[in-house]
Simulated scan of single mutants.
Amino acid sequence: MTEPLEQPGAPRAAGPTAPQPTTAPAAHVALSRRVAVASLLGLIVLGLAWELWLAPLRPGGSWWVIKVLPLLPALPGLLKNRMYTYRWLSLLVWLYFTEAVVRATSDSGLSAVLAGLQLILCVLLFVACTLHIRLRLRDAKATAAGTTP
């Protein structure tokens, strides 16, 4: 039997050597994204709980709870995997890191413990964001060069 002839202008089937586009992120990129989202959520929840219930400056809550507001716009950006969000969040987190260091060294009791937890979450968020940026850029360069990451 003979194979049918190709019609001119008909699309060709991709052979086994044709590169297939991949849309799923590599496992290490996905892991850094999950760690960034989890630590951001942790910072938001910790900030709310700390200033409203756990160790407020005044009974009934503190106006310092508004410190959580700058973190809220970052959540949709991380969930949509926007590179720009990872970049500015890796800079913003240093404000929360500074607050955590000051409160961990100046406060006592539960407030110092919560500041230590905030410190850990800040470091986790920064490392996850910077790692995510580096890994995505490295994978993009490897894809552009035609190699697999």
Rank of each mutant, 00 (worst) to 15 (best):
Q118H: 05
V35F: 02
A18S: 11
A128S: 15
H132G: 02
L91N: 01
L54Y: 07
S32C: 05
T143S: 13
G61S: 09
V35N: 02
L46R: 00
P56K: 13
A100N: 04
L78G: 06
I120P: 00
P19E: 05
L117T: 01
A74I: 04
A115K: 07
K80G: 01
L114F: 01
R134H: 14
F126Y: 06
W53G: 07
A140H: 10
V65A: 15
L41V: 08
W64P: 00
A145E: 15
Q7M: 11
V37F: 00
W63C: 01
T85Y: 02
A38W: 11
A104R: 06
L124R: 01
D107Q: 11
P73L: 05
P59R: 13
W63V: 13
L71K: 09
L57S: 12
A128L: 13
A30V: 02
P11V: 11
Q7A: 14
R138G: 09
H28P: 10
I44R: 02
S32G: 04
T17K: 12
I44C: 08
R58E: 15
S90E: 00
T98N: 08
Q7V: 14
Q20A: 14
S32T: 05
C129D: 10
R138D: 10
L125M: 13
A36F: 00
L54E: 04
C129E: 01
G116L: 06
W53D: 06
G42L: 11
T2R: 13
A145R: 10
P73S: 05
L137A: 10
T23E: 03
Q7P: 02
L121D: 00
E51I: 00
L125H: 04
T143W: 08
